[in-house]
Write a protein that binds this DNA or RNA. Structure first.
Lengths: 203, 203
DNA sequence: GTCGAACTTGACACTTGGTGACATGCGGGG
DNA sequence: CCCCGCATGTCACCAAGTGTCAAGTTCGAC
């Protein structure tokens, strides 16, 4: 039996509405462009008031970006789960891989979302903002795993940044090639290249 | 005699007003925080109407971010100016160095601006957006210098991204340490670490 | 010097994202 | 049956931008 915290009815209901809303919004966005759709329209299309929309998402951009937000948490979790004796480069590679795979998994949907984000300045900005958070998280996790003092110093921050750069670059090529390029292969190639930098645990 | 296009009076006037406005805004921001200052207040403080403000800057954030925007152009120019036979890692290192130096030059002002940007989500987001553009530019320049076909493929984009990650990480530590850390030294260290990745001109 | 063209500014109205306050409806538990 | 908590809708409101038009202002041509 899964002894997990019992997703109280209210919780599930909320999640349901949220997903429905996301779906509706996504369709509108890919149809008319992000900027051409107002919050009122989205809300109306989902059968609710503007005010209610903002009770589910903090901003218009969030509807799209939230969709990728869990990836960040996933990456950190994956990193934390890697065996401590593993080299930083390997651990980070697996962390990024897990997110890349999560994307490449449901190709259809993910591809649409990624293209939308990368092609809309406002969305891209928010996405990068999230990434900056992931970066702090990864850096902290990495510092912890290396027994370095917190807050993270130069090396962990740099390593986290490099890894996320790989992540974004892979997404870029994947979406630019309409899913033709194999994200996993790209990730592997990139990490092979930067591994020396990641494993240089100097000061 | 500088035979440059003669900065027509109007042009100089415009630049003057723009700088005055930037100065005023910056003072207000560091004083009360970015979000607590409205555009109307800034405009009033500079003795003009809100409408006129938006004729000088496309957005509230631009007043601050524009201040660092030339760095991007500078970086690309520097990269383009490096001798073609130079290795990518060396050329990129110099490009980033030039921007870092430009920052570290007028320490007082730059430090305030950087701290403001990194500490304000809205500003950070816009800053990252700009960086994304620089990245495209750098990647294109790099592809050109390597004789690769345009648009830039995986390697140039990755290399550009890695270089900018170094740039941002250096800024982070520099501002976090209140200017104590030497940006040039940090840059050198980071580039030593990632040089192998940058010079791996594989497919 | 004066007239007119081009440019700059201010004033005003309007759209849109986002928030706070309050009322209402709907559920389940006493 | 009534009360309590929760989700939602309504309304008012603020701040960021933008379009429009009516003034100045500059500057060169006549």
């Amino acid at each position: 039996m899964t002894t997990r915290p019992a997703p109280s009815l209210a919780e599930r209901k909320r999640r349901l509405v949220s997903e429905e809303l996301t779906e509706t919004a996504l369709n509108l966005f890919v149809g008319h462009g992000f900027d051409a759709v107002t919050v009122d329209e989205m809300a109306a299309a989902a059968g609710m008031s503007k005010r209610t929309f903002f009770r589910y998402f903090a901003s218009k951009e969030d509807v799209v970006v939230q969709f990728l937000a869990d990836l960040g948490a996933g990456m950190r979790a994956e990193l934390a789960a890697r065996p401590p004796e593993e080299s930083p480069s390997t651990a980070l590679r697996h962390a990024v891989r897990s997110s890349v795979d999560a994307c490449a998994g449901h190709t259809d949907r993910a591809l649409r979302v990624v293209r939308l984000i990368l092609g809309t300045p406002a969305l891209h900005a928010r996405f990068l903002e999230r990434q900056a958070q992931w970066r702090d998280d990864l850096a902290a996790e990495l510092a912890a795993r290396l027994g370095l003092p917190s807050p993270a110093g130069f090396y962990p921050r740099l390593a986290a940044g490099l890894s996320l750069t790989v992540f974004e670059t892979v997404l870029q090529l994947w979406s630019a090639s309409d899913g033709a390029e194999d994200p996993a292969a790209l990730t592997a190639r990139a990490f092979t290249a930067i591994a020396p930098a990641l494993d240089r645990t100097g000061p």
